[in-house]
Every structure is written in C-alpha cells, then in structure tokens.
Simulated scan of single mutants.
Amino acid sequence: MADVKNQPPRLTSKGQATRARILGVAADLILKRGVVGTQIDDVRRAAEVSGSQMTHYFKDKRALVKDVIAWQAQATLDNHTQPELGHLDSFASLRLWAHLVTERQKQVGLEGGCQFGSLAGQLVESDAETRADLAAGFERWLELFRKGLLAMRDRGDLRREADPEALAYALLGALQGGMLLAQTLRRIEPLRDALDAAVTHVESFAADTADAADVV
C-alpha cells in the first residue's frame, strides 16, 4: 500500500503507520457496517489504539470519514498502477487491467464490490463537502485513464477523433456498474462482459484495427 496522501505534518514513521492502520480498519468497518453503523469507538477498539491516539489523528468522526475517503481513493489508484499495467496506455494493458479486475473479484467471492464506489454510494448525498471529496477521488481515477488514452492517441495508436475523456468515462462506468451487478447477482459475467464491452469500444478507435485485434 502506498503512503496515504496529505499526512498531517510532523508525524513520525511510526505515527504514519499507526494512522494508516486506523484508516484501513475504519475503511473495512465502514464497508461492512456502513458509515452510520460505524462509530469512532468501534474503530478505536478494532485498531487496538487508545482514545488519545484516536483524537490525536482524527478530531472527530467527520474528520475520520474525510480521511477514509482520501485513503480509499489512494488505495484504489494503487490497485490500478501495478507495474504490469504500466500507464494503462496500450490496448494490451487495458485488456490486462480488465482481466486482473475480474480475477480479483473472483478471488474474493464477488463480495464487497468496489470499495471506493461503495463508499461513494453511502456518502455522496451527505453534504456538499463530502460529495466534493468523493468527486476528487473519482477525478483522480478518471485522470489515470485519460492520461493513458491521451498517450495512445498522441502516439498514433488511437485515431485523432478518439475522445480520451469519453473513453475514460466508459471504462470507469463499466467498472462501477459491472462491479455492482456482479456483487448483487453473485455472478462474474456482468463485470466481465461490461469491461470487455468498454475495452472493445476503446479498441474500435484503433488507428489500425488489426493492432487492437491482436491483443484480444
């Protein structure tokens, strides 16, 4: 797991590790119980820290939830920036991304879905500030796809009329919708087929369609 962004100043390495552990525990509890069903004291006990430690890192539940959003967004990006995926800037890397996402869901028994998406579903209508925090997380995710797709277009892999913004929406939308359906139906096909359709859509803009077909 990469270091959490926007760490409070002057934290020691041990302090950063403790804070990251608390955030991981909080994210897991929120995923299982929901935000309403997760209290500060629940997190404290599960993380095995003292009350003074909790208040040192998070002044209240709102601050904790805000930091969980940022932590979960970073964790999601970490899962999409594995070395084998490069910069998601080739047809092959997008196909591999779709495969890895699908396999990961199989390994967890289709339980949990997208953790950041689940968090957003719970909190998006809470208040404007929370919605903005969630939107920022999704924007970072979209930017990862946009950069890769833009690089493909600039390199000539994609035709000039390909719109990296629209294609990024298609990829992330397929992931979010496919994850939710697969989680609800307990079948991998909705996720597998949604991702396949989204990547196939990207491949339809290949400057040389034979190049895209080679990686299917």
Rank of each mutant, 00 (worst) to 15 (best):
K5G: 05
K5M: 06
N6Q: 14
P8Q: 09
R10I: 07
T12S: 15
S13K: 04
Q16A: 14
R19W: 04
A20P: 01
R21H: 15
I22A: 07
L23P: 00
A26P: 04
A27L: 08
D28R: 13
L29H: 12
R33N: 13
R33T: 08
V35A: 08
V36F: 03
G37E: 02
T38E: 07
T38F: 13
D42A: 12
D42F: 14
V43D: 01
R44P: 13
R45D: 14
A47Y: 07
A47N: 09
E48F: 02
V49N: 09
S50M: 03
G51C: 05
F58R: 05
F58L: 09
D60H: 11
K61G: 01
K61D: 05
A63L: 15
A63Q: 12
D67T: 12
V68Q: 06
V68S: 03
I69D: 00
I69K: 01
W71R: 03
L77Y: 01
D78C: 09
N79C: 03
Q82E: 10
G86N: 05
S90H: 04
F91Y: 03
S93H: 13
R95T: 04
R95C: 08
A98P: 05
H99K: 10
L100D: 13
L100R: 13
E103I: 04
R104G: 10
Q107E: 15
Q107T: 12
L110M: 05
G112E: 04
G113D: 08
Q115W: 14
F116D: 00
S118A: 10
L119S: 01
A120F: 10
G121Q: 06
G121V: 02
S126G: 01
D127T: 09
T130F: 05
R131G: 14
A136Q: 09
W141G: 09
L142S: 09
F145C: 04
R146F: 01
K147V: 11
G148E: 13
A151G: 09
M152L: 03
R153W: 02
D154E: 13
G156N: 10
D157Q: 15
L158R: 07
R160H: 14
R160C: 14
E161R: 06
D163M: 02
E165Q: 07
E165T: 08
L167Q: 00
Y169I: 10
L171N: 00
L172S: 11
A174C: 04
A174Q: 01
L175H: 15
G177T: 04
G177A: 11
G178S: 06
L180F: 09
Q183H: 11
T184Q: 06
T184N: 02
L185F: 12
R186L: 06
R186N: 14
R187S: 15
A194D: 10
L195H: 00
A197Q: 13
A198H: 03
E203I: 15
S204Y: 02
D211E: 14
D211P: 11
A213P: 04
V216W: 08
